[in-house]
């Protein structure tokens, strides 16, 4: 569904990604793990159209998305939940959600909203409160909810565990995994917290200094002691 083909991205003078290729199939979670500065966020931001690649392509349903604008990429069906619980604090919970997918029909948006409230009941209870009254975990749910409001086929999750209690992270990621399986959503998850990410993912990809050093079934990667010591630091 989503394919990344020999992608290279420079961040100023730094080579953030070097010749990265990977597949994100539907119906499951693909996890990219690696330490801080491995290029994980750059990968996500480039796929979402926020950064321009130096070389390589992103393909979505065989369509080249490289160089498209973020607002066009999300309309094609790729939604990014950026790092840091990117909700807008001055807007209410429901306004944050309604921001997603404004180009869609009224009926589509109503269906999505019902679905998001069913997935994250706490958002429904707080729909008229400002987003800055929510806890960290609730705000992460809101950020994911807003991405779901765009009716995506592929969901890009950038470091959702950041600053959250482990139990909440596990809950949210398991929910995402169920969603992927039930609705055929392709999920690309980027995490520093490798253990949690590999638990929900089918495929694991280890990124180090902008290069893929290992990819394979998530379970194998999770059990690879050497890999863990060398790149994942636990």
């Amino acid at each position: 569904m989503l394919r990344i083909d020999a992608l290279s991205v420079n961040y100023g003078a730094v080579e953030a990604l070097k010749n990265v290729s990977l597949d994100v199939p539907p119906g499951r979670v693909t996890a990219v793990i690696g330490a801080n500065g491995a290029g994980k966020s750059t990968l996500m931001r480039t796929l979402a159209g926020l950064e321009k690649p130096l070389a390589g392509r992103g393909l979505f349903n065989d369509e080249d998305i490289t160089g498209s604008k973020p607002e066009d990429i999300v309309r094609m069906g790729i939604a990014l939940v950026p790092e840091g619980r990117s909700t807008i604090p001055d807007l209410t919970v429901e306004e944050n959600l309604k921001l997603g997918g404004m180009w869609r029909t009224h009926a589509q948006r109503a269906t999505s909203l019902t679905r998001v409230y069913a997935l994250f009941p706490v958002l429904g209870e707080r729909r008229h409160l400002r987003a800055d009254t929510l806890s960290g975990g609730e705000r992460q749910q809101l950020a994911i909810g807003r991405a779901l409001m765009t009716g995506p086929q592929a969901l890009l999750l950038d470091e959702p565990s950041l600053g959250l209690a482990p139990l909440i992270v596990t809950q949210i990621l398991e929910l995402v995994e169920h969603m992927a399986r039930d609705s055929g959503l392709a999920v690309l998850l980027v995490e520093q917290n490798a253990a949690t990410a590999l638990r929900v993912a089918k495929t694991g990809i280890v990124l180090n200094l902008g290069e893929i050093v290992k990819s394979g079934p998530a379970r194998e990667i999770a059990q690879d002691e050497e890999l863990r010591h060398a790149y994942l630091g636990y």
């Binding site: 926020l50 909700t87 921001l99």
Partner: peptide, 24 residues
């Protein structure tokens, strides 16, 4: 209105607005 919400979001956080599909 939707357009008003889009304008407020574009003012508060243009990046999040673009990622939501708003033509900022």
């Amino acid at each position: 209105t939707n357009v008003g919400l889009a304008m407020r979001a574009s003012a508060f956080n243009p990046e999040v607005a673009r990622l939501s599909g708003v033509r900022v």
